[in-house]
Structure formats: C-alpha cells, structure tokens
Design a protein around this nucleic acid. Sequence first.
DNA 1: TCCCATACTCTCTTTTCGGTAAGTATAAAT
DNA 2: ATTTATACTTACCGAAAAGAGAGTATGGGA
Lengths: 136, 136
Amino acid sequence: MTDSGLRRELQDLPRTDPAVDQLVEEIIGRVADKWTMLLIEILTERECCRFGELAKACTGISQKMLTQTLRAMERDGLVTRTVYPVVPPKVEYRLTELGLGLSKAFCGVWLWAEANFETIDRARQDYTARQEAGQV
Amino acid sequence: MTDSGLRRELQDLPRTDPAVDQLVEEIIGRVADKWTMLLIEILTERECCRFGELAKACTGISQKMLTQTLRAMERDGLVTRTVYPVVPPKVEYRLTELGLGLSKAFCGVWLWAEANFETIDRARQDYTARQEAGQV
DNA sequence: TCCCATACTCTCTTTTCGGTAAGTATAAAT
DNA sequence: ATTTATACTTACCGAAAAGAGAGTATGGGA
C-alpha cells in the first residue's frame, strides 16, 4: 500500500486501485518474455510477416512456442492475424498500434542491453572469480 | 544475418557480431522477468533494502525465489550485496549504476502497461468473445 | 493418383520452475 | 539452558513449461 503510493508519486500517476496494479503486473509478466520481445522486434523491422518467416527469423523457437506466443499476442491486441483462405494456408501477422507502442517501450531495454553487455559480461566473470576464490 | 543488419541500421549501431547478438538476447531473457522487474522497482523507490524488507515489499515471492533472483542480479552486476558480520545476520541490497540504468529502461514498459491496461483488457474480452462466437 | 506446401494441432516426454518445510549459524536476551 | 532473530541453504515434490515429432487439411501441379 505504501510502496504502491510511492510508485504512483514517482510516476506522477495519481491512482490507487490495487486491482489495476495487479492487472498491470500481470501484463508485465505476460509481455516481459524473451520470445514476445523478439517477435515484436522482428515485426517492427519487417512490418508484415507470415508464420514461416517468423519461424526463420526467430532463431531457436519451436513451432509450438511460436504459435503459442503469437496467440497470446493476438489476444492482448499486440498483433493482428490475417488468414487468407487459400491452399496451402497463408497467415500474416503485423503489429497493431498497441504493439508498436510496446515496441517503442522495449526499445529502451534493447538499447540498455546493447550498451551494457560488456559490463555485464565482466560482472559475471568477476562474480565467478570471487566465488572460486571463496571456495578455496 | 540480414535481419540482424536491419536491426543495427534502425538503431544506428554498426555491429554485426552474432556472438554479441546472442549475448544480448540472453541478457534480455535473464532480465525480462517478473521478479527481477519488481525488485528493481522496489530498489529504485527505497534505495537500500535488507532481505526481509524486500520479502515484504515483493508480495507473493517465496524466500527461495527472492534469494535466487537477488543472486542472479548480483552476478549480472545489477545490485550490490553488503553483508554485515553481525548476529543475527544483516545484508543490504542496493542498485548499481547498471541496475539504475535498467530501471530507467524498464520505466518505459511500466508506463506503457499503465497507460494501456484498459485497451488490453478490452482486447482480451473481444478475443474471448470471438472465440466463443466461433465455437457455435 | 500421388505428392507438395503451409500453418498449424496433438501427444508424449523431458526439463525447468517454484513452493514448502526443515536445517544452520551464533550472539544476545531471558 | 533455552529462545529469538535473520538470512539464508538444502532436499523434496508437484506443476507447469517447453521440446520433439507425428498428424491434419486441401487445392494445385507432376
């Protein structure tokens, strides 16, 4: 209750509904996911993608995960899914305005990661070294 | 290769090392996690925290998860862990510069979530409605 | 007639996640 | 002597996530 109040204050957003806080946290949990972030990036670059293209671009993802993640994104209104009734099937995905907004928000995180990966790598090495020194 | 090039171009960062891309993606995967994001938020508000305080502020987290997440954050250089050699034990956590940078990057995502939770909620209802309509 | 392409969907198995609960260390207080 | 407080660590277990791989639908081409 107190912390929530503080957070609101910091962000100049006067709101205090705990249900809203919970929903917001749930959304963050849903959206702050490796595959979601990757897909959003890919869809930001080439704005319209078929399933197969996404599968290729999103290295390492399984078909199942791809379907699952895309469905969740569709449900949350981040992407549109257009089915062309042809054979073989053709389905196109593209970001919505909402998805584009999230893409921009994520941009900061990507930039942070790209700017700091060396620092993090060094921190990890230091940590491991300290661990090993402690073991002796 | 091609997509990676495009991404670089978009972000004005001329780099093409696939190992770096992989590391960056791994970092995103590590850091884009509910508890990490929550802890960073809490540590941004009250800048210095003991273990017990964090446990209280981070509603719903178990001791195990809290320890685990904090360790990972320490390893990545996001927080410092200061142990006071007293009994009973006292350990303080605080964000590093790196952690603070990530906090700022995350801020955009929080703001996006707070600004758009209603849209998302509606999108979900629409999706469910469409599903049910299709079932019939 | 048979096969191909595409975007799934389903099943089965493995892996990981995460919670509970108990144990540890130790000085100070009772 | 026993209890208390704190920040863990460890072991165990069930649930959930995720991977592998086969199956499905169907119009057009060989």
